[in-house]
Deep mutational scan, measured.
Amino acid sequence: GIDPFTGEAIAKFNFNGDTQVEMSFRKGERITLLRQVDENWYEGRIPGTSRQGIFPITYVDVIKRPL
């Protein structure tokens, strides 16, 4: 089901994660935001896939912030 505490964002740019914990994505992908890790990073996942990880806040347009 849908978790009411998650947020939502759209990727503004392609992001290629450097490490296992970073999640790569392509511009235009819809991302579920799980939490804000710190002032620069979100943790999120791509709905319908097993992809999950952290990524820079500046790479996405936030539609709804996670609670």
Rank of each mutant, 00 (worst) to 15 (best):
L67T: 15
M23L: 15
T6Q: 13
I54M: 09
N16T: 13
P56M: 04
G7E: 08
Q36V: 09
G53V: 01
D3C: 14
D61I: 15
F25Y: 01
D18K: 15
I2K: 14
P4C: 15
F55K: 00
R51D: 02
F25R: 00
S50Q: 11
L34K: 03
I10P: 00
F15A: 00
T32P: 00
I31N: 00
N14W: 05
S24T: 09
E22A: 08
F15T: 01
F25P: 00
R35A: 09
F5T: 13
L34W: 06
E39F: 08
G53C: 02
G7L: 09
T32L: 12
T58Y: 11
G28Y: 05
I31K: 00
D38P: 02
G7T: 10
G28P: 01
I46V: 10
E43L: 13
F55T: 00
T58F: 11
G48F: 08
W41Y: 12
L33I: 14
F15G: 00
T19V: 07
T6D: 11
F55D: 00
R51I: 05
A11E: 01
E22R: 06
G28T: 02
D3Q: 12
R35N: 07
Y59I: 05
L34G: 04
P47W: 09
Y59R: 06
S50A: 11
Y42V: 06
I10Q: 05
M23R: 00
P56G: 02
E22L: 08
V21Y: 15
V21G: 15
D38H: 08
S50Y: 09
E8K: 08
A9N: 01
G1Q: 12
F13G: 07
P66D: 05
E29P: 00
D18Q: 15
F25W: 02
R35K: 10
D18S: 15
V37G: 01
L67D: 13
I2S: 15
P47H: 10
D61S: 10
E8D: 10
E29F: 02
T58A: 15
G1K: 07
T32V: 13
G44M: 01
Y59V: 07
E43C: 11
R45H: 11
E29S: 02
A11D: 00
E22P: 02
N40T: 14
Q20K: 13
L33C: 07
Y59T: 08
T19E: 10
K27V: 11
R51Y: 04
F15D: 03
Q36K: 11
G28E: 03
I54Q: 06
Y42P: 04
N40A: 10
V37M: 08
T58I: 14
Y59Q: 06
I54E: 02
N14S: 10
F5N: 13
K27I: 11
R35V: 07
I57K: 11
S50P: 10
G17V: 04
E43A: 07
I57P: 04
I31R: 00
M23T: 01
I10L: 08
P47S: 10
K27F: 06
I46F: 04
I31H: 00
F15H: 05
E29A: 03
I31P: 00
V62F: 07
K64E: 10
I63M: 08
L67S: 14
D61W: 14
